[in-house]
Design a protein around this nucleic acid. Sequence first.
DNA 1: CAGCATCCTCGTGGATACTG
DNA 2: CAGTATCCACGAGGATGCTG
Lengths: 140, 140
Amino acid sequence: MPVKKAVQGSMVTSREPRPPRVLNEAHEDCAIRRVLDRLGDKWSYLLILKLAKGPQRFGELRRAVDDISQRMLTETLRSLQRDGLVARTVYPTTPPSVEYRLTALGQSLLEPMQGLVAWADRQLPAIVSARATFDQAKCG
Amino acid sequence: MPVKKAVQGSMVTSREPRPPRVLNEAHEDCAIRRVLDRLGDKWSYLLILKLAKGPQRFGELRRAVDDISQRMLTETLRSLQRDGLVARTVYPTTPPSVEYRLTALGQSLLEPMQGLVAWADRQLPAIVSARATFDQAKCG
DNA sequence: CAGCATCCTCGTGGATACTG
DNA sequence: CAGTATCCACGAGGATGCTG
């Protein structure tokens, strides 16, 4: 395991301080990549699944997920809203109450998503087992 | 393993060096999260889609994706292999030749994945449009 | 209650050099 | 060709404090 030198010895290479990195963005026009960049983050997929159960308030979602930080909940919900997958409704009560629900577009994502969820549920044992075999072969 | 302290500036804040973070791992038993942690990375999904076309050699995959670094190609392929989604075959020629192909388990993932790809292709315009509207409302 | 602002840590992954 | 090994930039996201 790479314990991270930390030191960078006294003598050290003649290495230059590395020029800024230039991104290759050629893939930006690939639909699946753009969608995965969105759904592949830590919380989006999960929040959509929670919202599939029906509209929910901010605090409800927070409790439903329970290990999401409030900052990420806010941020993820907003980006889902931006993409038109989630709608946000403010009720001007005191204290304020905000409800989130899936839009039609968001709903339309449920079907393909549930296909993946079903696959995950079915195949997880096989994956875990494959993993064990692989690790055994390595270390045994 | 996080040895890393390294600098931590000379003068700097009166703030304490923040106690170590303890992970909430309560979600570890959720199949979809475990599967997404795997497929949600930058390359797995894409490599599986490439391998769906048939077995391919290391270099072929490298060129097929073309903006993946060789390090990440190696690493991603190995973790897919570990999970039993991809099989690796070495042909002891000179120079060596290594072929990767989807296992049956990997194949079984294609169907749910393609559902998602299809959705992405269909709905990307709607998402882009929603995004524009949202941004307009913000800045306009 | 439903956020916003700030700061800081750490994991992901790119760049590069080297090997069998 | 198909990797391994190292170094390091950067952005995701947790912790915390404050607000309407």
